[in-house]
C-alpha cells in the first residue's frame, strides 16, 4: 500500500511517500520543508513527490499525519492539508503523536519535546493518552529511571539522562504507524483533531480568574 506521511509540527518539517506492507516501510520519496513557510511549501512538496513517484492522490492507500504536539500553526497546516487530500480522494487517515514517533525512533521508553516557556511536552511510549505539558522537574518525577528521547539541544540541557536523536520525520511517522496501517486501524476524518497538549492562553487566563 502506498502511504503519504506528513509532519509539519516541528521547526523543520517533512513529507514522505512509502510502500507499506508486512515486510516493512520502504520509503519511495521524501522531502524536507523549511520551517515558517509550511503553508506555502507543503502542497508543492507533496505534488512533486507524488509526480516523481508516478503516484496519483487516488492511488494512495492512506495518509499518516503527525497531529502534534508542536507549533500550533504548523500542526494545523499539516492536519488541514491531510484532511483536504483525504476528503477529496476518500482516503483513510491515521493521526499520530510526535512524542510517540520520537520514542519509537530512539528506542526509548519516554520522549520529550521543547514546549517553550520552560516547559516540555512529555510522553511515555505506548501511552499517548498520558502525554502532558510539564516542567523538567515534574518529568523526572514521572519517569525517574527512564532514558528519555529528545531531539533538541534545549531539552537535552534541561534534563539529565536523555538520549539525543535526530528529529523525527514523516518517514518515522510512517514506520510508527505501520501496525495500524496494516490492521486498517484508521481515524475518523471528521473527528481527527490536533494534539496540542497546551491550552490556549485565553482559556488559561480565564481559568486563573476563576471564570
Amino acid at each position: 500500500m502506498r502511504v503519504l506521511g506528513v509532519d509539519t509540527c516541528g521547526p523543520e518539517g517533512s513529507v514522505a511517500l512509502a510502500e507499506v506492507n508486512e515486510q516493512g516501510v520502504m520509503v519511495l520519496q521524501a522531502r524536507h520543508l523549511a520551517g515558517r513557510t509550511y503553508s506555502e511549501d507543503l502542497m508543492p512538496a507533496i505534488r512533486e513527490m507524488l509526480e516523481a513517484a508516478g503516484v496519483a492522490v487516488g492511488d494512495l492507500g492512506a495518509i499518516v499525519v503527525v497531529r502534534g504536539p508542536g507549533s500550533f500553526t504548523g500542526v494545523r497546516v499539516g492536519l488541514s492539508t491531510a484532511k483536504g487530500l483525504a476528503q477529496a480522494a476518500g482516503l483513510p487517515v491515521i493521526g499520530v503523536s510526535r512524542l510517540q514517533v520520537l520514542a519509537q525512533k530512539a528506542g526509548s521508553r519516554a520522549a520529550v519535546l521543547d514546549a517553550g516557556r520552560g516547559e516540555m511536552y512529555f510522553g511515555l511510549a505506548d501511552d499517548e493518552a498520558g502525554e502532558a505539558l510539564l516542567r523538567p522537574a515534574e518529568i523526572r518525577e514521572r519517569a525517574p529511571e527512564y532514558e528519555i528521547a529528545c531531539c533538541e539541544t534545549k531539552a537535552a540541557q534541561a534534563l539529565t539522562g536523555v538520549r539525543v536523536v535526530d528529529a523525527p520525520e514523516a518517514e518515522d511517522a510512517l514506520r510508527f504507524a505501520q501496525g495500524r496501517i496494516l490492521n486498517r486501524d484508521f481515524d475518523d476524518l471528521s473527528a481527527m483533531d490536533a494534539h496540542y497538549l497546551r491550552r490556549s492562553e485565553a482559556e488559561l487566563v480565564a481559568e486563573r480568574r476563576g471564570q
Partner: peptide
Amino acid sequence: PGALLVGVSYAKALAFG
C-alpha cells in the same frame, strides 16, 4: 492569520486531490 490558514491549507489540498 491562523484561522485563514486552516481554510487555505484545506482548500489547496482538496482542490489538488
